[in-house]
Write a protein that binds this DNA or RNA. Structure first.
Length: 450
DNA sequence: TCTGGGGTCCTAGGACCC
DNA sequence: TCTGGGGTCCTAGGACCC
């Protein structure tokens, strides 16, 4: 009988990251319902249709950069018949959730990193097994949701980011790239530019370049403790990750987010305390609802206002915070705090361009002091607060103006500070805007949201 | 004329205490 | 009158990310 023990078994990796990254995510979401836009240049714009936040490959090829203000590329848009959309975040978030839920059916351990990216974790697998799982993920997401994706495979998150970058940019990988093979990894890192590494931004890149570092391989080979002292623990972790060591702490797993922010730039400048107040109270109410959606409570409420960065004269910015005695999720409490704070920071005579409300010191429970707390705020009062907020949320869903707090001002007035002229329909989140399809016999039917 | 929004983590420096 | 140093906590601001 043949001795199988001498046959080399493929190496098993104890933990492998598969980073799934959606290609041109916002543009891809718009294209799901507009197949006529395949192969055509498409842009998605920021709030108030101010600047570019997503570009199709055709737009990238025209040299239009991320973040450029729209008024600077008006001519290009006309000349190349670029199709522009206002950002439809409800749609993108809904598509994102569908993708993440689908991923969980393939591998249970999924760390959602952003609206268009997630790290799926697979354990005790060979390189070949990891690769085939990644291919299955790609095929499933593309077929079931219709969003094209790239996947990077590696033993650390930073390397997985590099792999997904290559999967996206270099056609020979066909959308899936693995850096598990040490020889390939060495070869890739030897010409991978520093500034493309996750965690190395403009400033760090400049500093490192000045000290003679050019490539990921050079950084990976540098003296760790020395670099940690000279730069920071953050860069040190990146170096470890480049060497295949899993050094960046888990992103998810019971992690409670640290703050909820709601802020906007205004299409038209605000001048009076009344205008500023309406904006801030409206932001406070929205932040409060987000808080309740996440089943969280906040203890610190902050507000800020500022004039435009882009004008030289009469600049002003200010912010103030208030810490409550007890955590809350009641919009009425939040708005009272906002009212108090805005009076402290508002100064007449300025043209306000942006304002925001931040909720922080978030917790999953209402009070850390238990009994003590209940003595001061009877349980029935808390139950009443919950009930009022439930009603408020129920009747205020999806932008409905049926019920809102007085301080927010009327919904009609609110329109003055938001502008989305190129918004696509709420295809997936509003029954009135479901996509329609036409059958061969010309009868019109609606997709059923099943 | 027109320039987004929402996050995280780290560090340096000040206040305060012993 | 001379005049230390270490620890901790908090905050503002920087850098980075998508």
């Amino acid at each position: 009988m043949e001795d199988l023990s001498v046959v080399p078994q493929p190496e098993k990796y104890s933990k492998v990251y598969l980073l799934l990254d959606c290609n041109n995510f916002f543009v891809s979401c718009e294209r799901i319902f507009r197949p006529d836009l395949e192969k055509r240049p498409v842009l998605v714009l920021s709030n108030n249709d101010g600047c570019v936040v997503a570009r199709s490959a055709e737009v990238k090829a025209l040299g239009i950069k991320m973040g450029v203000p729209v008024f600077k590329i008006k001519d290009l848009i006309t000349k190349h018949h670029i199709v522009c959309f206002s950002s439809n975040f409800n749609l993108y978030l809904d598509i994102s959730n569908r993708i993440m839920r689908l991923l969980e059916t393939i591998t249970p351990e999924v760390l959602v990193y952003s609206v268009d990216e997630a790290f799926a974790v697979v354990r005790e697998v060979t390189a070949a097994e990891a690769f085939s799982t990644a291919c299955r993920m790609k095929k499933t997401v593309e077929r079931s949701i219709g969003v094209p994706v790239s996947i990077g495979i590696a033993s650390s998150k930073t390397l997985a980011k590099i792999a997904s970058h290559l999967a996206k940019k270099q056609s020979q990988y066909e959308g899936v790239c693995s850096l598990l093979d040490p020889l390939l990894r060495t070869r890739i890192l030897a010409d991978f530019p520093l500034k493309e590494i996750w965690g190395i931004g403009r400033k760090l890149n400049e500093r490192l370049q000045n000290e003679g570092f050019q490539t990921a391989a050079q950084l990976a080979a540098a003296d760790g403790p020395k670099m940690k002292k000279r730069y920071s623990v953050v860069l040190y972790r990146t170096m470890q990750e480049l060497n295949g060591i899993d050094a960046i702490e888990e992103l998810a797993e019971g992690h409670v987010q640290q703050q909820i922010m709601w802020s906007r730039s205004f299409r038209d400048r605000l001048y009076t305390l009344e205008e500023v107040s309406q904006a801030l109270c409206s932001f406070g109410a929205q932040a409060g609802r987000r808080l309740r959606d996440l089943h969280l409570y906040c203890r610190i409420i902050s507000v800020y206002i500022r004039t435009s960065y882009f004008v030289q004269d009469k600049q002003y910015q200010a912010g103030e915070s208030l810490r409550l005695d007890h955590p809350t999720s009641d919009s009425r409490v939040i708005l009272c705090a906002v009212e108090v704070l805005q009076r402290k920071i508002y100064r007449p005579g300025f043209a306000y361009a942006k304002a925001g409300v931040v909720l922080s010191e978030l917790s999953t429970t209402r009070g850390h002091q238990g009994d003590l707390f209940l003595k001061e705020n009877s349980a029935s009062e808390l139950a009443q607060s919950d009930r009022v907020m439930e009603l408020l949320d129920h009747y205020g869903r999806h932008g409905s103006a049926a019920l809102y707090l007085g301080a927010q001002g009327s919904q009609l007035q609110k329109k003055a500070f938001s502008d989305k002229r190129l918004l696509s329909p709420a295809y997936t989140t509003n029954f009135a805007e479901l996509p329609e399809i036409f059958c061969a016999d010309k009868t019109k039917i609606r997709h059923n949201k099943s």
